[in-house]
Measured scan of single mutants.
Amino acid sequence: MATGGRRGAAAAPLLVAVAALLLGAAGHLYPGEVCPGMDIRNNLTRLHELENCSVIEGHLQILLMFKTRPEDFRDLSFPKLIMITDYLLLFRVYGLESLKDLFPNLTVIRGSRLFFNYALVIFEMVHLKELGLYNLMNITRGSVRIEKNNELCYLATIDWSRILDSVEDNYIVLNKDDNEECGDICPGTAKGKTNCPATVINGQFVERCWTHSHCQKVCPTICKSHGCTAEGLCCHSECLGNCSQPDDPTKCVACRNFYLDGRCVETCPPPYYHFQDWRCVNFSFCQDLHHKCKNSRRQGCHQYVIHNNKCIPECPSGYTMNSSNLLCTPCLGPCPKVCHLLEGEKTIDSVTSAQELRGCTVINGSLIINIRGGNNLAAELEANLGLIEEISGYLKIRRSYALVSLSFFRKLRLIRGETLEIGNYSFYALDNQNLRQLWDWSKHNLTITQGKLFFHYNPKLCLSEIHKMEEVSGTKGRQERNDIALKTNGDQASCENELLKFSYIRTSFDKI
């Protein structure tokens, strides 16, 4: 039985969820670079991206490699990797027998973001014989899940209580170790020597080791999670996991709180800001991140802002960003909400898709409305799209047979046209069989910064309504002859009103 693990408890099935942008060198404390989270699957090609990484700022997932063999891993080693800020997950990587050479110096898994409450997941690794993470000293947050690894031993010899604050939620089941077939031998045991430290858990006094050649490092209890030197002297209180010299914040392997210019500090002093819960960055760093993602459509890219001495992905609820200094300031009234469309555009074809934009005031991208039916549609669209004030790209209304009016965009005031449909149009209306009105132009103002209007096959939309939009939106004169079809717009509506004058002759039985 794995020490510190839980057996036999019912657990939810383990679901495996399925960018080499360097964020800056980590400095003297770390020998390499800070790398983003990685999802490495199918083959070993991307694994080489770990070569210079000291910190993975995010998670590391290595999974679904069915053609790899043990010899493929023999020359692979990433000794610079010290810390993973989120979680480490391995799933069905064939041929991998140990992690001792792959990650010989991995010391800390912070667990800032977890995989279903777990910071370390080893699942269905069919050839893994031992973990071998002999320098792993601290899992700051989260638990361990090690399950269905039929060859995995050296679990009962690990004292997880020396690595985690609590072992109650560890789930370590259905491994070879369960069948008591392992016969784990710690260093020196074969020669009758006791080389590794022994600890007591559940009444068992057991030597602690990761492999037959690597003991588990056990520091004096007084050192807590700070770690200790090879001689057993406690590291500085700002260290986490390990250090090369005692009581020196510049000799830590990793930091308990924050890293700044080669030393570990309790908090980031001005003019620095907390970033990702582990390091200090200056304003320029946060500003660069903001600008890199301002026009990016890459998933996970955030326009970072500053709030409460932190550089964070977005302002919290009730705050909006001051564009001059990136500071989050309290909103006066309802907060603006910028919604970034991942692929640059979004099609609204149902109430469900409209709900995804609920509360958005600025759309960074283009909207395509293609709704053919739905219950209580006008009210639903207004509830979900009615706060949109600005669209950076274009607005396209296409084959939306259920629409009679666009009044559900009740606050839309600006279409920038930074991206144009077919390279020309910022407003595009095609084949809307029941569209009769755009907006009530006596109450609604709309500016279209650039781009043209396109109207074709809107049989109940009168040309007068379209011409009014040209005047109000500032697009009059931009359109070419064929942009607004004269014969297919309003051709099934009563669009022309003329005053009919009647004269009559009164007659009676005795007068003409």
Score class of each variant (00 low, 15 high):
103 F>A: 00
50 L>K: 00
212 H>M: 05
85 T>Q: 12
257 N>S: 07
188 G>T: 05
43 N>V: 09
98 S>Q: 02
179 N>Q: 07
125 M>Q: 05
161 S>Y: 09
227 G>L: 04
289 L>W: 02
70 P>M: 11
139 I>F: 03
265 V>P: 00
317 S>M: 10
40 I>P: 00
143 S>G: 07
214 H>M: 13
43 N>P: 02
290 H>R: 05
159 D>E: 13
81 L>G: 00
46 R>A: 15
227 G>K: 04
285 F>D: 04
175 N>Q: 11
305 V>S: 11
277 D>T: 05
180 E>T: 07
330 P>V: 04
139 I>P: 01
323 S>H: 15
98 S>A: 05
250 T>P: 00
283 F>R: 13
59 H>P: 11
149 N>Q: 03
93 V>H: 12
263 R>I: 00
294 K>M: 09
271 P>L: 02
76 L>A: 12
239 C>Y: 00
247 D>R: 10
315 C>Y: 00
198 A>N: 13
130 E>S: 08
121 V>G: 01
142 G>A: 01
49 E>A: 07
194 T>F: 15
28 H>M: 05
170 N>G: 06
75 D>C: 09
142 G>K: 01
307 H>P: 01
120 L>S: 00
304 Y>P: 02
256 R>P: 01
112 S>L: 14
35 C>L: 00
333 G>D: 13
90 L>P: 00
119 A>D: 00
99 L>V: 09
308 N>E: 13
182 C>M: 14
50 L>W: 02
303 Q>T: 10
41 R>F: 14
98 S>F: 02
187 P>R: 05
90 L>N: 00
210 W>K: 06
286 C>R: 00
325 N>V: 05
214 H>D: 05
79 P>A: 05
122 I>R: 00
182 C>L: 04
279 R>F: 14
85 T>S: 05
267 T>F: 15
210 W>N: 04
32 G>E: 08
212 H>S: 04
59 H>V: 09
248 D>N: 04
233 L>N: 13
120 L>G: 00
89 L>H: 04
276 Q>L: 08
230 A>M: 05
314 E>M: 06
204 Q>M: 10
279 R>K: 05
95 G>W: 05
174 L>I: 11
124 E>Q: 13
170 N>P: 06
334 P>Q: 10
234 C>H: 01
44 L>I: 09
324 S>H: 10
278 W>E: 02
204 Q>G: 15
156 A>L: 04
270 P>H: 04
201 I>G: 13
236 H>V: 02
314 E>F: 01
72 D>L: 02
210 W>M: 14
287 Q>V: 03
195 N>F: 10
255 C>L: 00
310 K>Y: 08
50 L>A: 07
297 R>A: 11
329 T>Q: 15
165 D>R: 11
152 L>K: 01
228 C>A: 02
37 G>I: 02
36 P>D: 01
290 H>V: 09
130 E>M: 14
227 G>F: 05
78 F>E: 00
35 C>R: 01
116 F>G: 11
119 A>C: 03
81 L>K: 00
310 K>N: 08
243 C>G: 00
144 V>P: 02
129 K>P: 01
313 P>K: 10
223 C>L: 02
53 C>P: 00
306 I>W: 03
103 F>M: 05
148 K>G: 04
58 G>A: 00
100 K>T: 06
263 R>D: 00
265 V>H: 00
151 E>F: 05
97 E>H: 09
316 P>N: 03
89 L>P: 00
33 E>W: 09
152 L>I: 08
143 S>Y: 03
275 F>M: 04
183 G>S: 11
223 C>K: 02
95 G>K: 03
110 R>G: 09
276 Q>C: 03
241 G>M: 02
333 G>A: 03
115 F>P: 02
215 C>I: 05
309 N>M: 08
303 Q>G: 11
229 T>Y: 03
117 N>C: 04
72 D>S: 07
72 D>H: 03
284 S>H: 05
157 T>I: 08
158 I>D: 05
261 D>Y: 04
216 Q>V: 12
238 E>C: 01
102 L>S: 01
183 G>D: 14
335 C>T: 08
302 H>E: 08
48 H>N: 15
160 W>C: 02
169 D>N: 11
90 L>K: 01
177 D>I: 15
238 E>A: 13
234 C>Y: 15
310 K>V: 05
199 T>Q: 10
214 H>N: 14
42 N>T: 12
305 V>H: 03
86 D>Y: 01
203 G>Y: 08
288 D>W: 05
278 W>C: 02
61 Q>M: 04
34 V>T: 08
111 G>I: 01
58 G>W: 01
328 C>T: 00
98 S>R: 03
239 C>S: 00
201 I>L: 14
294 K>A: 14
335 C>E: 04
241 G>E: 02
82 I>Y: 14
169 D>S: 05
189 T>I: 12
251 K>N: 06
70 P>S: 05
79 P>T: 06
331 C>M: 02
158 I>G: 04
246 P>S: 08
191 K>S: 08
177 D>Y: 03
143 S>H: 13
287 Q>P: 03
137 M>Q: 14
152 L>T: 03
283 F>Y: 08
77 S>W: 08
137 M>P: 01
286 C>I: 03
33 E>S: 14
262 G>F: 03
176 K>M: 11
91 F>P: 00
206 V>S: 13
170 N>K: 12
216 Q>F: 12
38 M>K: 10
115 F>W: 15
51 E>L: 05
79 P>N: 07
238 E>F: 04
280 C>K: 01
319 Y>A: 09
141 R>E: 12
241 G>N: 05
217 K>V: 10
211 T>Y: 06
321 M>Y: 13
255 C>D: 01
60 L>V: 06
169 D>K: 13
281 V>M: 02
212 H>F: 10
208 R>K: 13
29 L>H: 14
105 N>H: 03
270 P>F: 05
268 C>Q: 01
230 A>T: 04
158 I>N: 06
62 I>R: 01
245 Q>P: 02
230 A>L: 04
48 H>M: 15
194 T>H: 12
279 R>G: 14
303 Q>A: 05
269 P>V: 08
288 D>M: 15
195 N>V: 11
280 C>V: 00
214 H>P: 07
68 T>R: 14
171 Y>W: 10
36 P>H: 03
246 P>T: 03
195 N>L: 11
300 G>Y: 04
129 K>F: 10
263 R>F: 00
239 C>D: 00
265 V>Y: 00
223 C>Y: 02
102 L>W: 09
309 N>C: 03
123 F>G: 12
304 Y>R: 03
300 G>K: 15
224 K>E: 14
36 P>A: 09
304 Y>T: 13
310 K>S: 05
324 S>E: 04
330 P>T: 13
49 E>Q: 12
148 K>H: 15
315 C>F: 00
98 S>N: 08
45 T>Q: 10
72 D>C: 13
69 R>M: 07
283 F>T: 10
240 L>F: 04
303 Q>S: 11
144 V>I: 14
215 C>G: 13
101 D>P: 12
266 E>W: 15
147 E>Q: 14
160 W>S: 01
157 T>E: 14
161 S>F: 11
